[in-house]
Design a protein around this nucleic acid. Structure first.
Lengths: 219, 219
DNA sequence: TTGCTTAACCAATAAATATTTGGTTAAATC
DNA sequence: GATTTAACCAAATATTTATTGGTTAAGCAA
């Protein structure tokens, strides 16, 4: 037993008989050491013990809180994009979007399917590259939404935001004409057909094949 | 031709001969109308024309910017959690985390593996439920990090934040003893072993089995 | 020496305040 | 009647101030 056990037991007793606020925050060190009648140094030793024990966590400027340290909130899109690159983004798309397509094959509603068909039609009729890209974004977004899982859809949105931020920093194809890449048309058709036929694995495979080609063209 | 064409052509000329900052922001209206020698009302008419034309976008408090209006950032963790539920979150975990484990089997470094082993050891030695949960979170986070893809790791973090926000609003097991669920120990071991043996599909399956049991216990 | 107290200071965070910005309205002016 | 001007608003940002945990060093006591 060391000398700081006094402060530690006193702190534990105080915590036990107190109803802390809902956020689990306890008073600032300078107040708390007065309440307990111990010096700040002793109090900090006791707090350090509890923190090592995982019973509370502290952070400069925030305070001291009961419970386990919360995971840091996700970083901003900009900071993620800064530490990443098109290859990583493309790999993430290849892993996530086929999965979304598979779920969409189960849960897509008729309005989802109508929207997908509208997107592929607009793409075929597009006269500018921007129109084409807008329709492409909307198609992929609709597939994500059709998965029927709002969390997965939100994750897709974030991935998409990162993708835009990453390619933003790179050179862009300045040509204004729509792509002549007719493979893309057929692949988009395959995706929509597989989903509308409720063929899970075909939807997965169609999206995978499509993104594989996108990646190939990227390199 | 209407009367505001004067301001419009003058604005277009000014834009043409100016090198705007990299963010595409142009001076505040009150400055710009002095620079151009037109009234603010006329300037705003001209700006409205260009905005309708999609050549610039404006926002209160921010300013006026050349180009097309940026897509809105993804929603906050709180708002996602509000519109979701534990079932959706669990489904998302079942789809994403096994995939992360598979990638981790390829890219995990020795320090990642050491950290994973440390987590399972702490879990076995845990005397409080909080300690156990801390180690569990850390283990899953380390697997995500070991995937070697910063974008996927960021997505995992967001999913994890949503998960915490969702279960936060529900009742919590208030018992303070660590779980006696020894299946979890074995399953965590299986995950770490599969990753350290670089067995991609075994890692995928181990994580899938583990989360399936978590889901079963949840219901 | 050894350990504790105290005070001052630091950087990170949060809270509060001030400023700037596009949007709107109404009286003044030509 | 149309335009200018000025004032005001709410959203967003910028700046300032206050608070918090973390650290250090001098003073003090056992």
């Amino acid at each position: 037993m060391t000398a700081n056990d006094g402060a530690l037991t006193q702190l534990r007793a105080w915590l036990a008989q107190r109803n802390l606020p809902s956020d689990g925050r306890l008073p600032a060190e300078r107040e708390l050491c007065e309440l307990l009648g111990v010096s700040r140094g002793e109090l900090r030793k006791a707090l350090a013990t509890l923190e090592d024990n995982g019973e509370l966590w502290r952070h400069v400027g925030k305070g001291t809180f009961i419970g386990s340290r919360p995971v840091e909130e996700f970083s901003s899109v900009a900071s993620i994009a800064e530490g990443s690159n098109p290859v990583e983004v493309m790999q993430a798309r290849l892993l996530i979007e086929p999965m979304l397509a598979r779920e969409a094959a189960i849960n897509a509603t008729n309005s989802h399917l109508d929207e997908m068909r509208r997107c592929v039609r607009i793409q075929r009729e597009a006269t500018t590259w921007r129109q084409y890209e807008n329709a492409d974004n909307r198609l992929h977004r609709t597939v994500a939404e059709a998965s029927g899982n709002t969390v997965l859809t939100a994750l897709f949105d974030q991935l998409n935001a990162v993708r835009r931020a990453v390619v933003w920093g790179r050179l862009r194809d300045t040509s204004n004409h729509p792509p002549e890449n007719h493979h893309s048309f057929a692949q988009h058709d395959d995706i929509v057909i597989a989903i509308s036929e409720r063929d899970r694995e075909a939807a997965y495979q169609a999206m995978y094949d499509h993104l594989s080609m996108v990646r190939k063209n990227l390199l």
